[in-house]
Design a binder for these strands. Structure first.
Lengths: 195, 195
DNA sequence: CCGGGAATGAGAACGTGTTCTCATTGGCGC
DNA sequence: GCGCCAATGAGAACACGTTCTCATTCCCGG
């Protein structure tokens, strides 16, 4: 973790393994019981590390969930690289991406609820993690529009869509709307914004 | 609270006064220290009631903040009725409203942070309170577009804008973006959506 | 191999949201 | 007036995120 941080070696490897076990335990507990199901003592026990160790790797419960969420979004990006969005127009492709994303998330309600709640209640200490999630999402959207560098307007549209995406999920997690509303909101917004 | 609930009488009056004192204490503490500055014991002490009484009136800290937030949004609506948004086009008027709203909020950073955090981490138990805030905001936006009944598309646009509004505030509260970004995001989104 | 020091384990301790208990109060029907 | 009883006050108790302490482990440079 310091300047002389060896990228390899036994220490680095065991640390990477610990980090992985902690994230995996988080995902599992989140899938079972949502935000409240992720209790730091349980995460530590499930990962086979001490509570203090969890806090050395992740400064708070929210950061832990945000980092776990980032992995999920990255997984979506990888999936999309393998199976690109289908559709003849940019709007269709974006709708396809958003639909797949929201389906993935509403399929695992508890885990998504945990991560959305972490996003929605983030404090400035976690701003970098929030920004990474947000950037990943807008990147996924602009990439669905067309190949090559996105225009300024493309980026603005993608930003709005990622904001609608977050708010919809907040509404869904908060029990205001059903899962179908999330998908509908996103499709309607995409079609209004992409001529 | 029951079916035989008297809308008047000494009891009802003292209960209304209690409720008001609790909300006022919440607003004051939130303005001073944000979400963490609102500690339920302090709210009770400041309002001159017992901790258990606070919980009889508001089932959780989040609901307390959401109800306080609802009052703020209602205040914005009243203000707008008095001083209607200016602008020749629907887009201009909506931008004016959004700009005023975001200015009001970013002026009181701590209080807004507290309420946004409550919105972002709401659970299904508070879905009605979240829905009321969201409805109030979309109502304010559709009213700025034009007089009379809003069309289906108007409502969809207003919904997207209120979602952008929430996400922008989340980003601002989370330290990702500055206050100017909130206003810019809203204006850009409004101009893209309202021809 | 060995010593130093960082990382970890184990668990106590603290703060704050939430719940619970129990005695007291005060409004309402009689 | 009087008694009933829901509302309230006062504060203990509990749960969980977070911090802290201290002993132990184990990697790395010599």
């Amino acid at each position: 973790m310091s300047a002389s941080d060896p990228v390899d070696g036994a220490l680095a490897r065991s640390q990477a393994a610990r980090r992985r076990r902690v994230i995996d335990a988080t995902l599992e507990l989140a899938a079972g019981g949502g935000f409240d199901g992720v209790q730091m003592r349980d995460v530590a026990a499930e990962a086979g590390v001490a509570l203090g160790t969890v806090y050395r790797y992740f400064e708070s419960k929210e950061r832990l969930l945000l980092e776990a969420n980032l992995e999920q979004v990255e997984a979506l990006r990888v999936l999309l690289a393998d199976r690109p969005p289908t559709g003849d127009t940019a709007a269709d492709r974006v709708v396809d991406v958003l639909r797949r994303a929201s389906r993935t998330q509403t399929r695992r309600p508890e885990a998504t609820a945990a991560m959305v709640r972490a996003l929605g209640s983030a404090r400035p200490e976690e701003s970098d993690a929030v920004a990474r999630v947000s950037d990943a999402m807008t990147g996924i959207i602009t990439r669905a529009m067309h190949d090559g560098e996105p225009s300024e307007r493309d980026r603005a549209v993608a930003r709005v869509l990622s904001q609608v995406w977050l708010s919809s999920l907040v509404g869904w997690v908060g029990g205001v709307d059903g899962a179908d509303v999330v998908a509908d909101d996103l499709e309607r917004a995409a079609r209004m914004l992409i001529s």
